[in-house]
Design a protein around this nucleic acid. Structure first.
Lengths: 168, 168
DNA sequence: CGATACGGTACGAGGACGGTCCTATATTCG
DNA sequence: CGAATATAGGACCGTCCTCGTACCGTATCG
């Protein structure tokens, strides 16, 4: 609920992988599929979407593949979401191409809702791929691995702050 | 995409209506359905959900109905979302009951993703019903009414700031 | 010219969401 | 007490969207 699609999730994973090597490294669909463990057609579809939006640069033919079109710091989560699941619209009736609304003009919540939606979008706009790969997180990472049951553990620490560091 | 469900949208509308009168005013399903123009069963379902979560207080029998269980300033958007569409989980593999993930432990993006998810949730947690009904928005509200075509107009003004006023 | 790898699009299965309906229970009033 | 009212808690169904797959076209390298 209120979730981002798996394509976006996978997309971030793949982009994180692409940003691992040198800036002009080229990765083929098969390479990335093998590295991520995701099915090849799925990876292909996601990379196509990212390339169409200009996040990835594509090279066709033998020895072709994809590479980041800009630096990781210039790729926002919002752009990834837009490329893979369309514009961020928290609510239809208060997002930019205004959807139909039976209360047009007399609704007391439209503008605040729009403000809320904008806040969410701005948050995603402010978070870059670089943020996602350079925030290494606390040291209890290792103990999170191991148990596949995934028992709910209490909230460990406020991880919110690091993301803000790029907000002006 | 990345949208909240219509039930939450409707729920906010209905709660905004409930917070209009005195604090102990009681509204029946039929009243709210008539006021909102939404079908009665739908309104009923939403109100049930809100009551189950303790956001609304319910009174059965003749002259029964619903009223806000707490003040509008104590009802967060996050609570409304939780009541009507479950916990806020931006991504399955990085939200609190950790979902299955094939990269458990070796994924470089889990913690940042969790941080991002927390940021979104915190934003919703910080926004209260009171915020949504007391931010009246700019004066061009009236001209938005009238045309039912809903043509896309350019972004009018940064509406993001007002929401922040309650963030400490 | 053939092999490789991207580009676009269409297709099917599965699940979530929107929306409706039915029965049980509690309260008020005559 | 009994009828009327209004919520509680389900089950139920149609539809849309997402995930995942597959096919065909096109560009590039050797």
């Amino acid at each position: 609920m209120l979730k981002i699609s798996k394509q976006v999730d996978y997309g971030i994973l793949l982009l994180a992988h692409c940003s691992g090597g040198t800036s002009d490294a080229v990765y083929s669909t098969r390479d990335l599929a093998a590295a991520s463990g995701l099915p090849v057609p799925m990876v292909s579809k996601i990379l196509k979407g990212l390339a169409r939006e200009g996040i990835l640069e594509s090279f066709r033919g033998t020895k072709g593949g994809y590479s980041l079109a800009r630096s990781a710091g210039e790729i926002t989560v919002a752009a990834i979401v837009r490329a893979l699941e369309g514009p961020v619209r928290l609510v239809d009736c208060a997002s930019e191409p205004l959807g139909p609304c039976r209360f047009r003009g007399q609704c007391r919540v439209v503008h605040p809702m729009k403000a809320l939606a904008d806040s969410v979008r701005e948050l995603l706009e402010r978070t870059t791929l670089e943020n996602l790969i350079t925030v290494p997180a606390p040291e209890e990472e290792s103990q999170a691995a191991g148990d596949s049951t995934g028992g709910a553990r209490p909230d460990p620490a406020p991880l919110t702050i690091p993301l803000r560091k790029h907000a002006q």
